[in-house]
Amino acid sequence: MSNGDVKLTISLWVGPEREEALKKANMLEIPELQEAFAGLKRLRVPITYEQAQKLKEVYPSAKIDTSSTQTVELLPRECLDKIFAMVIEKKSVNVIPDLLKSLGK
Protein backbone atom coordinates (compact mmCIF):
# COMPACT_ATOMS: atom_id res chain seq x y z
CA MET A 1 0.00 0.00 0.00
CA SER A 2 1.42 3.40 -0.92
CA ASN A 3 1.18 6.33 1.43
CA GLY A 4 -1.38 7.86 -0.91
CA ASP A 5 -3.85 5.11 0.02
CA VAL A 6 -3.46 5.55 3.77
CA LYS A 7 -6.64 6.66 5.47
CA LEU A 8 -5.99 9.02 8.34
CA THR A 9 -8.18 11.03 10.67
CA ILE A 10 -8.13 14.39 12.38
CA SER A 11 -9.47 14.19 15.93
CA LEU A 12 -11.62 16.98 17.23
CA TRP A 13 -12.56 17.09 20.90
CA VAL A 14 -16.25 17.61 21.49
CA GLY A 15 -17.17 19.22 24.78
CA PRO A 16 -20.64 20.40 25.84
CA GLU A 17 -20.65 23.42 23.49
CA ARG A 18 -19.66 21.47 20.40
CA GLU A 19 -22.00 18.66 21.38
CA GLU A 20 -24.87 21.12 21.36
CA ALA A 21 -23.92 22.26 17.86
CA LEU A 22 -23.76 18.64 16.66
CA LYS A 23 -27.15 17.99 18.24
CA LYS A 24 -28.68 20.89 16.30
CA ALA A 25 -27.10 19.51 13.12
CA ASN A 26 -28.65 16.13 13.95
CA MET A 27 -25.21 14.51 14.03
CA LEU A 28 -25.05 13.03 17.54
CA GLU A 29 -25.53 9.47 16.33
CA ILE A 30 -22.89 9.38 13.57
CA PRO A 31 -20.24 6.64 13.95
CA GLU A 32 -17.40 9.16 13.72
CA LEU A 33 -18.48 10.62 17.08
CA GLN A 34 -17.46 8.49 20.04
CA GLU A 35 -17.18 8.74 23.80
CA ALA A 36 -13.54 9.34 24.74
CA PHE A 37 -13.07 10.36 28.34
CA ALA A 38 -15.31 11.43 31.20
CA GLY A 39 -18.19 12.52 29.00
CA LEU A 40 -15.93 14.18 26.47
CA LYS A 41 -16.40 12.92 22.91
CA ARG A 42 -14.07 12.70 19.96
CA LEU A 43 -15.08 13.39 16.37
CA ARG A 44 -12.92 11.77 13.73
CA VAL A 45 -12.72 13.59 10.42
CA PRO A 46 -11.30 11.48 7.57
CA ILE A 47 -8.36 12.72 5.54
CA THR A 48 -6.09 10.98 3.03
CA TYR A 49 -2.32 11.05 3.21
CA GLU A 50 -2.17 13.27 0.13
CA GLN A 51 -4.64 15.71 1.64
CA ALA A 52 -2.66 15.67 4.87
CA GLN A 53 0.49 16.56 2.97
CA LYS A 54 -1.26 19.55 1.40
CA LEU A 55 -2.53 20.63 4.81
CA LYS A 56 0.98 20.38 6.20
CA GLU A 57 2.15 22.81 3.52
CA VAL A 58 -0.20 25.38 5.05
CA TYR A 59 0.44 24.34 8.67
CA PRO A 60 4.05 23.11 8.87
CA SER A 61 3.71 22.32 12.59
CA ALA A 62 1.30 19.48 11.76
CA LYS A 63 2.50 15.95 12.37
CA ILE A 64 1.33 13.12 10.16
CA ASP A 65 1.47 9.85 12.07
CA THR A 66 1.15 6.93 9.69
CA SER A 67 2.89 4.41 11.94
CA SER A 68 0.85 4.23 15.14
CA THR A 69 -2.22 6.44 15.56
CA GLN A 70 -2.99 7.08 11.87
CA THR A 71 -3.82 10.66 12.71
CA VAL A 72 -2.83 14.19 11.81
CA GLU A 73 -1.75 15.91 15.01
CA LEU A 74 -0.66 19.36 16.14
CA LEU A 75 -2.84 21.34 13.80
CA PRO A 76 -3.37 24.85 15.12
CA ARG A 77 -6.57 25.66 16.90
CA GLU A 78 -7.77 27.98 14.11
CA CYS A 79 -7.60 25.10 11.62
CA LEU A 80 -9.45 22.71 13.93
CA ASP A 81 -12.13 25.32 14.67
CA LYS A 82 -12.56 25.84 10.94
CA ILE A 83 -12.92 22.11 10.32
CA PHE A 84 -15.58 21.84 13.01
CA ALA A 85 -17.49 24.84 11.65
CA MET A 86 -17.47 23.23 8.19
CA VAL A 87 -18.71 19.91 9.63
CA ILE A 88 -21.68 21.70 11.16
CA GLU A 89 -22.33 23.74 8.05
CA LYS A 90 -22.20 20.73 5.71
CA LYS A 91 -23.73 18.32 8.25
CA SER A 92 -21.00 15.89 7.18
CA VAL A 93 -17.50 14.90 8.29
CA ASN A 94 -16.27 14.86 4.67
CA VAL A 95 -15.05 18.42 4.65
CA ILE A 96 -11.34 18.20 3.89
CA PRO A 97 -11.60 18.82 0.11
CA ASP A 98 -13.54 22.02 0.81
CA LEU A 99 -11.10 22.99 3.55
CA LEU A 100 -8.13 22.62 1.21
CA LYS A 101 -9.95 24.58 -1.47
CA SER A 102 -10.58 27.40 0.99
CA LEU A 103 -6.86 27.36 1.80
CA GLY A 104 -5.95 27.61 -1.86
CA LYS A 105 -4.73 23.99 -2.13
Binding site: S11, P16, A36, A38, G39, L40, L74, D81
Partner: peptide, 16 residues
Amino acid sequence: VIRSIIQQGVKPTRLI
Protein backbone atom coordinates in the same frame (compact mmCIF):
# COMPACT_ATOMS: atom_id res chain seq x y z
CA VAL B 1 -5.27 13.68 26.32
CA ILE B 2 -5.43 16.59 28.74
CA ARG B 3 -2.83 18.53 26.77
CA SER B 4 -4.64 17.81 23.53
CA ILE B 5 -7.92 19.11 24.99
CA ILE B 6 -6.23 22.29 26.17
CA GLN B 7 -4.36 22.68 22.90
CA GLN B 8 -7.63 22.58 20.99
CA GLY B 9 -9.18 25.09 23.39
CA VAL B 10 -12.36 23.05 23.59
CA LYS B 11 -14.04 23.48 26.91
CA PRO B 12 -14.31 19.94 28.32
CA THR B 13 -16.95 18.53 30.63
CA ARG B 14 -16.76 19.78 34.21
CA LEU B 15 -15.82 16.26 35.22
CA ILE B 16 -12.43 16.90 33.60
